[in-house]
């Protein structure tokens, strides 16, 4: 376990999102809302195209924070879904996640998380608390 400092920036990681991953997430989570799989339906309700589940974006950010100290170390995790992640057919949409250490407390650290697609933030107020050994 490395030591952390307040203000320390953790290296960004890229998570590709495509239509196949949306189907995989729908099956794993039980969220079969057609706006995440059916282009025609998504457009019929005023969306530009199929969009990713907000909770898929958050699950990928959950993987990012799990990589800091393991999935069992995550105590609090929250985010706002500020922009839809559009997932066109046939290509990968790149989600870029990074984080900054915002506070160090006894036995735990707090992270501010940034999640970007095409240089636009897709999560707001994304924060996590992680227990450190």
């Amino acid at each position: 376990m490395s030591t952390f400092t307040v203000g320390q920036e953790l290296a960004p990681k890229v998570y590709p999102i495509n239509r196949a991953l949306l189907v995989e997430y729908a099956n794993a989570s039980g969220d079969q809302n057609p706006i995440h799989q059916n282009e025609e339906f998504a457009k019929s309700v005023g969306l530009p195209d199929v969009i990713a589940h907000g909770m898929l974006t958050m699950a990928l950010a959950g993987k990012y924070i799990s990589d800091v100290a393991g999935p069992a170390a995550v105590k609090e995790f929250g985010a706002r879904f500020t922009k839809p992640v559009v997932v066109p057919a046939g290509v990968d949409t790149s989600l870029v996640i990074s984080a900054k250490v915002s506070a160090i407390e006894v036995g735990q650290i707090k992270l501010d998380i940034t999640a970007m697609v095409d240089d636009v933030k897709v999560l707001g107020m994304a924060k996590a608390t992680i227990v450190t050994p």
Binding site: N27, L56, G62, S66, A72, F77
Partner: peptide
């Protein structure tokens, strides 16, 4: 394992941090 596979998590001893949503959102 299915939830972990989506995000590329290989530690399967515990559920990923957002796994609870698969129960609560439904």
């Amino acid at each position: 394992a299915a939830f972990a596979a989506v995000v590329g998590e290989t530690n399967l001893e515990v559920a990923p941090p957002t796994y609870a949503i698969s129960i609560t959102l439904n």
